[in-house]
Amino acid sequence: MTSSTSRAQRLLTLGATEVVRRDEATVRPADLDLVVDTVGGPDLGAHLRLLGPYGRYLLCGAAGGFRPAPTSRRSWRSTTAPPPG
């Protein structure tokens, strides 16, 4: 998910198979394979809830600060659990 067409094109050039413009589509929770967050902050919990099974969250900036809410911690644990069996 990105904020502009030029950024979406860049992500596709880098190998993304699909990019969602945040102003053009709604993403269902537990649907994404990868979230790259360059801001951090209060949206952390919401970003983690977007991850599908075995999804990955990459925080590469913290301009918005870093204070995970209790719901974020629960989500984080569920995305880092080892595969069953």
Rank of each mutant, 00 (worst) to 15 (best):
L14Y: 14
R7I: 08
A46D: 07
V35P: 00
L51P: 00
C60Q: 09
P53T: 09
G45Y: 01
P68M: 03
S75C: 09
Q9E: 15
V39C: 05
D37L: 01
P68V: 13
L51N: 00
V20A: 06
R28L: 14
W76I: 14
T38W: 03
A16T: 13
V19G: 09
G52A: 07
R77C: 07
V35K: 02
A63D: 15
L34Y: 13
V19C: 11
D33L: 05
R74C: 08
P82E: 09
S72I: 01
R56V: 11
G55H: 06
R49E: 01
T2A: 04
V36C: 08
G61C: 00
A16Y: 10
R22T: 06
R67L: 15
R7A: 15
A25G: 04
Y54S: 13
D33C: 10
G41N: 06
A25S: 13
C60G: 12
R56M: 06
R28I: 06
A25E: 13
W76P: 03
A8E: 08
P84M: 04
S78H: 13
D43T: 07
L34C: 06
R7D: 15
D33T: 14
L48F: 04
A62N: 11
F66T: 01
V20R: 09
D43K: 05
T71F: 12
L12C: 11
G52P: 03
V35R: 01
G15A: 10
